[in-house]
């Protein structure tokens, strides 16, 4: 679809009462949404590059949350290998293995998952910084549940 045609289309949709418009042609899909009419109208003359329009559309198909996680490419999620109780510290009266902002090295112990007295020490798979602790001490976790997010060190 050429630029001129696209501009025409945008103008056409903008001037109509439509709040949603979708068209597919030659493998290119265009979706237009009007959140608030006023804003959209003012933006019309700015939208001149079809490439950028395409990009916006692609992203609009994903949940905001997913986009965020994918954008932070160097963050890895540590998941639980089994159902059990999450222990953040080696014993009840010691401080947690790790906290948010703490640097960890590959192989460092992050937490213990316990099921039927099997203590499973979860280790960091990468060097990095703890970005988030997703579970509270003593909570039950499921198989595959996210336990930590680690910001991997840059290359």
């Amino acid at each position: 679809m050429d630029v001129k045609k696209l501009q025409e289309l945008i103008e056409c949709v903008s001037n109509s009462n439509l709040t949603y418009f979708e068209v597919e042609e030659g493998g290119t899909k265009i979706v237009m949404k009007k959140e608030c009419e006023g804003v959209v109208l003012r933006e019309v003359p700015k939208i001149e590059r079809p490439i950028s329009v395409d990009k916006v559309e692609e992203k609009s198909y994903e949940k905001v949350e997913n986009v965020k996680i994918q954008e932070i490419r160097d963050e890895i999620i540590v998941k639980s290998p089994m159902v059990g109780t999450f222990y953040s510290a080696p014993s009840p009266d010691t401080s947690p293995f790790v906290a948010v902002g703490q640097r960890v090295k590959k192989g460092d112990i992050l937490c213990i998952i316990e099921a039927m007295k099997i203590m499973n020490e979860i280790e960091a798979e990468v060097d990095g910084t703890i970005a988030a602790v997703c579970v509270q001490n003593g909570e039950m976790v499921e198989y595959g549940q996210a336990l930590f997010r680690i910001q991997r060190d840059g290359e």
């Binding site: 039927m116 099997i118 499973n120 595959g144």
Partner: peptide, 22 residues
């Protein structure tokens, strides 16, 4: 799941520790 008792008192304890991936 992991203790053995004789006459109600502990005689044996088992502590299993694991290193695992997903």
């Amino acid at each position: 799941p992991n203790d053995i008792l004789i006459n109600g008192k502990k005689i044996c304890g088992i502590l299993t520790e694991m290193n695992a991936e997903l």
